[in-house]
Amino acid sequence: MLMEKNRIKIRIYRKDPEKDAKGYFQEFDVPVEEGMVVLDAVNYVTEHYDQTIAVRWNCKAARCGSCAAEINGMPKLMCKTRIDQLGGVVSIEPMHAFPLVKDLVTDVNENYETERAMPEFTPKEEKEPWIIDEMDVLRSQEFRKCIECFLCQDVCHVIRDHTTKYIGPRHVAKAASLDMHPADSLDRSKILTEEKGLGYCNVTKCCQEVCPEHIKITDNAIIPEKERAADGFYDPIMMLIGKIKKRKNGKNVE
């Protein structure tokens, strides 16, 4: 038990794009409780000092991925970042890779558009109920842990700092989760490379580092997709085998 009530200074980024030309920080003094997370501190501020601070949160248990923010410069979930693990002043900013709505809230709807443009799960025609081996579900299931907090999109320098075709780590992981589904009939590596800018990823693995679900996005989704693409694009032996197979089938099946 704490003998004395500790206090901490938190700096919250404020900006309403319709009113303010520039963002600024507002500093608040918040009492610290044991086990307190950054979201507790922000909620304390909204409940006691300033109700107008825009913040998005839902489950407060690291299950929904709503409260993604940049805490002291690192993309993190506010509900999963303990105050006692941060020293000094805590700065909280929205995910700057997305258009700002207000204060800590950003508009992440572009991600749904990207998802919409991805070919959906297309099952092979098989008799039901499907028989799928346990060993074949594990790889795809890793990506299904994704809580869509979009921290990986925020940290990815291709998305954040450059304008390219690249759709970002979350969506490559999504494509991988569909591709590696044993009952799925499509191969998305080709469109990933041709249309969705997979080649812009330079495997610096920050997405993997910030993932709150500890999904190995680069190692298990992006690189395998790059390798699958290499089968079709850069590997003459594989290309030859593919062509022979196509000819055998008698038609070009895309």
Partner: peptide, 9 residues
């Protein structure tokens, strides 16, 4: 206080 935009209060 404030306006309607993303006002949690």
């Amino acid at each position: 206080s404030g306006d309607m935009k993303f006002n949690k209060g």
